[in-house]
């Protein structure tokens, strides 16, 4: 047996409403709110970054686990907003949770799926006996160019998963990935903001990869949509995952528990990790979950997961995703500019 020993998510306290951003750029806020399905997005505080979010998520995961941090043999942090261009985020997390020094660590990058890539690496290390426990984190404080469509969605959040073989809250029954070179979104060195292919980010990128990974996973497990209680898809906006569900014939109510973009925006590497945490916060023992992440560039990692009885024993030990979503404070566009350091002082 192998799977999730524990999990934790973190969302910063601040929010900005889509309408506040639209107002500044003279856009029709109703059209944008409806078009993206995003009511508001999370904004980090001035003293938060992908490292601090990762540490908070990892600390919650440890609260829900009965393990000694010294038993963690590997930590991977996936992000597209690592605070340093050179110097790992993963060592900061490892030191903060007390897992150093007899361990390995590395930072990962694969747009929004760097966190799930970390889960796969941990599965390999744990299954081979090279690690007792591995921690995979997806964390981002992503930025959109002011006035660009991404400014409405790019937000901040993190999710951490402890992978191991005993005391599982959820078994990982299998994983499958679908990967190609698809140039839908990128950022060159030295650039503050990413570039994207506009409409090209849809069909050939998101829908092809997330859909193929989900279908491929079901083929390999010999399962069908009816076998799953929840589907968690990457969520750059609220429209894409719902449209994919419709195309695949998945009932909407199996998707919405894992769809948080309307309330927090797109937390990039954090997105699928936080969304799955919200499902684990409410799923009953025995519930089966199909996850399909997405990273531009492009690839999707799918996971077939079954929740165990232990979930009910540990979930209340840590702050739940819903509590983070509800505990919020709104920012004006001016304050938002300060928080996102778009202001050069």
């Amino acid at each position: 047996m192998i799977g999730i020993v524990s999990y934790g998510a973190y969302i910063p306290k601040y929010r900005i409403k889509t309408e506040k951003i639209a107002e500044v750029w003279g856009e029709d806020s109703d059209r944008i709110t409806k078009g993206l399905g995003i009511i508001e997005k999370s904004v980090p505080n001035v003293d938060e970054d992908a490292s601090t979010l990762a540490v908070e998520a990892a600390r919650i995961a440890l609260k829900r686990a009965d393990i000694d941090p010294q038993e963690i043999d590997a930590i991977f942090v996936g992000s597209e907003s690592h605070p340093y261009a050179v110097k790992p985020t993963s060592t900061i997390v490892a030191e903060a949770i007390g897992a150093t020094p007899h361990m390995t660590a590395a930072d990962l990058e694969f747009a929004c799926k760097a966190g799930t890539a970390g889960i796969q690496i941990c599965l390999g290390l744990v299954k081979s006996g090279m690690a007792r426990y591995g921690v995979a984190i997806g964390s981002d404080t992503s930025q959109g160019r002011p006035g660009d469509a991404l400014e409405y969605s790019a937000s901040a959040g993190a999710g951490a998963y402890i992978i191991g073989q005993k005391n599982l809250v959820a078994e990982i029954n299998g994983t499958y990935s679908f990967t190609t070179d698809t140039p839908d979104f990128w950022r060159r060195p030295g650039q503050d903001y990413p570039s994207h292919g506009g409409r090209f980010t849809g069909e050939p990128a998101y829908f092809k990869h997330v859909g193929s990974a989900a279908r491929g996973m079901m083929e390999r497990m010999n399962t069908s949509i009816e076998d799953y209680d929840y589907f968690v898809f990457h969520q750059p906006n609220a429209k894409f995952p719902l449209r994919l569900a419709k195309k695949m014939g998945i009932p909407k109510e199996k998707v919405t528990p894992g769809l948080l973009t309307p309330y927090i925006g797109n937390t990039y590497s954090g997105a699928i990790m936080v969304a799955l945490s919200n499902v684990l916060d409410q799923a009953k023992p025995g519930a089966r979950i199909l996850v399909s992440s997405f990273g531009s560039g492009a690839g999707s990692d799918a996971f077939d997961i079954t929740v165990t009885d232990r979930i009910e024993e540990v979930r209340n030990r840590g702050t739940k995703v819903k509590e983070f979503i509800d505990n919020k404070e709104y920012l004006s566009y001016g304050k938002y500019v300060k928080h996102r350091r778009k202001l050069k002082m």
């Binding site: 505080n45 003293d47 938060e48 970054d49 601090t52 540490v55 908070e56 600390r59 903060a96």
Partner: peptide
């Protein structure tokens, strides 16, 4: 007298 808890931030 207010109760506080530690958070991890950039100092």
């Amino acid at each position: 007298g207010a109760q506080v808890k530690m958070v991890f931030r950039k100092m």
